[in-house]
Design a protein around this nucleic acid. Sequence first.
DNA 1: CTCACTTTTTCCACTCACAGGACAAAGGGG
DNA 2: CCCCTTTGTCCTGTGAGTGGAAAAAGTGAG
Lengths: 396, 396
Amino acid sequence: MRRMTARPANAHQARLLRLLRDGGPNSRAQLGDQVDLSRSKLAVEVDRLLETELVVADGLAASRGGRRSHNIRLNPHLRFLGVDIGATSVDVAVTNAELEILGHINQPMDVREGPVAVFEQVLAMAAKLRASGLAEGFDGAGIGVPGPVRFPEGIPVAPPIMPGWDGFPVREALSQDLGCPVMVDNDVNLMAMGEQHAGVARTVADFLCVKIGTGIGCGIVVGGEVYRGTTGSAGDIGHIQAVPDGRPCACGNRGCLEAHFSGAALARDATEAAQQRLSAELASRLETNGTLSAVDVAAAAAAGDATALDLIREGGTRTGQVIAGLVSFFNPGLVVIGGGVTGLGHTLLAAIRTQVYRQSLPLATGNLPIVLGELGPTAGVIGAARLISDHLFSPA
Amino acid sequence: MRRMTARPANAHQARLLRLLRDGGPNSRAQLGDQVDLSRSKLAVEVDRLLETELVVADGLAASRGGRRSHNIRLNPHLRFLGVDIGATSVDVAVTNAELEILGHINQPMDVREGPVAVFEQVLAMAAKLRASGLAEGFDGAGIGVPGPVRFPEGIPVAPPIMPGWDGFPVREALSQDLGCPVMVDNDVNLMAMGEQHAGVARTVADFLCVKIGTGIGCGIVVGGEVYRGTTGSAGDIGHIQAVPDGRPCACGNRGCLEAHFSGAALARDATEAAQQRLSAELASRLETNGTLSAVDVAAAAAAGDATALDLIREGGTRTGQVIAGLVSFFNPGLVVIGGGVTGLGHTLLAAIRTQVYRQSLPLATGNLPIVLGELGPTAGVIGAARLISDHLFSPA
DNA sequence: CTCACTTTTTCCACTCACAGGACAAAGGGG
DNA sequence: CCCCTTTGTCCTGTGAGTGGAAAAAGTGAG
């Protein structure tokens, strides 16, 4: 199928497209209430959008007391692909233009296999989604990778956990393979955009989104826009020192947050505790599975295992220490905690909260919610779809 | 004298005013090269600006090979007042519309005397500058205060070191007293704006400006704009924990950066060292002056005193630890160190650099200059003038 | 000094975006 | 069936802005 490559011709059209994306089908009259344009001008722009087929007519709206208005909506055939590449698994989802997830697949995978192998798998997953009838093709794709990205070019730079990706032209390569526009960003930034679009951060302009997965990262949103830093490595908080002269870290330093708490560190600590017979619960799980992961710790904690709870609390305290510093510095309006370890849930959250509220000044914490992400594993792919839609729904 | 209260009528005029402010007198033709407007449109807008008397004709420009162009410049009678209120002293300066300092006074003063007493002194200083013939009146004033500010209203909020200021309507009160528009901001933010306008940060979009004075604060510039946070307390890094279970701090916690290194902490440490006879140099200074301050430590260090040098190095290391974390998080393009203790100079800078380059990842530090501010004590007042000029040179 | 060539400035006609009023179309409620 | 409200369309006026032409004011070579 021929995809629709049209782009809005001006800022008004872009504005309208985003309103339709975020607010769903809408009548012309309702749109008029939101955009501060004369009815005539609005009609012209809507007509032009209808011509491009980016939006289509959608029946009549409910009456507001007078003549019924005609609804319009984004073309229901538009499809975005959201890809969230994690350290150990990959999520691929298809959304419509309103960024609703129509289909979602998760598969285990190791980023260290390199970009070629990974994208082969991603393309296969995308093909599978397409084959299941959810999409005839893609109008755009957003890709999240677990490391810093030179954003304008869509190229990973010096990613510590994914050697072999450095300099790989992700954007260009995938754009070729998929035959549609592609944008690439850090997975943490996409999680932040996801929570901003459809999750807990919908109404907040300045917030932090801390993702605790295999590693730890932090999405920074300033004035509603993701902040990426000078070289694209902003938010790389995993290597902030949390414990002076603490554990050695893969980066060469000691005491990095990530060395003391992250999916990987938690798995290692749990294995150690199991081997030392500190926890029967963990030991039995280790015997059954052969290895332990953060999921096992979460399960053990849920079962009341004291060792697991301690591990989580201590990790939360460490994380809270770092976050407390960031809160003092950045004074956000919200802190979102997400990522693979959200299964650790409220034990973790409580430990983080305690530490942040204790260590930061009242003016910064006074009205500061610290909450778990609302979208779980879908935050990344929704953020990815949001990324590409923001790009496509902006003046050419 | 009647002041010129005119404001630019549109974005084009605002743009032109800022170009003239930042680039000095300029010919119409040169302006045309910078603004991407048709000659006709440019001529119209310039004529309107001339009518408002915000800009005036300024003779003929040098020939570029053809007909000579007429120069225009900002009205040379325009005057801005820059006020930088520190914890222990206050700076007041008069600038022209190009933000060049025409006169500058510094006087010791204690903020804790409260806003009424302080502003009495500030107004006296402003009157003195006016009386010396530098200004017939002020077209706008920028005020920096050493604590968080609710920026839109220009009101200090919960300032820890200046009780009695909480909620005082600084902007409104001074606007009344001075009879001109006033903007108020945190002193650290103003220092950042100063270094951005006329100092080391001229070409950098994202940078941090760490001010080490009586306390420690950090100005954050994102995309060329000062970021103030949700409640105006962004950059309040003095109470980030630098030493776990370290010294008690006035804020109630332990180990805050400010408790371990700042003008106040340094003075206290030096006094202690002198009393314990660890340093002859410091001891003799203590006897002579009765008290010690950061300036004495700087002098002792310059004289080669080992104890003073150690104090500075250790403080720099602590500060560097905190900055390293901020660099990982924020990935700035530049870090500026300034404030009263800049006298400690390169000993301090070297200690900070060592720590940051050691603790942050290469991608963030690879091309990261860490430098001393270029403007010294004038950074604040220039930033203050810049603040109000930005306000006045924006569409009404 | 004159002439050819540049650059700057002014003038003017034309385009385009947009607002807002008039009016037609469509629906609700008595 | 009538009156009122809302929605959609049409049309004209206005003001911003562009770009070309030509005048004004220089420069430099011969």
